[in-house]
């Protein structure tokens, strides 16, 4: 069993995504059903729009990769390899009209709602400066 509140910054050790679409730079294991993550928006972030703000799809990818990091962390703890994962569906996503820009740090709290086989359902809340900018539910499918 993992010890509580284990922080990982070597994110590529937990997830299969690589630059230019790496959208998590810190992961904090809380327990098997809960984790946190963060991402500071760099000037070369591929989801930055011409208006200087991160596109909504970038926030969704950040949540998906937070889920992937949690799944990867648990797999590594069990002595298994990190595998590919995919978004299966997204439900009830609500975005604030204040989107993040370069230098802002996203903070995400993620809860595993259910996990059956390779299908994981999560709910997530993403904030910047303690202001919630996204809530959503997401289903992810992982290769075995």
């Amino acid at each position: 069993m993992s010890s509580p509140a284990c922080k990982v910054t070597d994110i590529p050790s937990l997830i299969p995504q690589r630059p230019p679409i790496l959208m998590v730079d810190g992961y904090l294991f809380e327990d098997e059903l809960h984790c946190k993550s963060e991402l500071t928006i760099a000037a070369d972030n591929m989801f930055l729009g011409e208006d200087g703000y991160v596109a909504e799809e970038g926030l969704l990818e950040h949540v998906a990769q937070t889920s992937a990091a949690h799944i990867g962390f648990l797999r590594k703890q069990a002595g298994e390899n990190v595998t590919l994962g995919y978004i299966g569906d997204i439900k009830k996503a609500v975005f604030d009209n204040r989107m993040p820009k370069v230098g802002d740090t996203l903070h995400t709290c993620l809860t595993v709602v259910s996990q059956v086989g390779g299908i994981t359902m999560v709910s997530a809340e993403t904030s910047v400066n303690e202001h919630v900018i996204l809530t959503c539910r997401m289903k992810l499918a992982s290769d075995n």
């Binding site: 630059p19 990818e61 998906a64």
Partner: peptide
């Protein structure tokens, strides 16, 4: 370039980029 990272050696279009295309 996204296919260099999603995923190395196994290019798959990220679902979120398909959503951006639709938007």
């Amino acid at each position: 370039p996204v296919y260099q990272g999603h995923f190395p050696g196994n290019p798959i279009t990220p679902g979120v980029l398909a959503m951006q295309m639709i938007r």
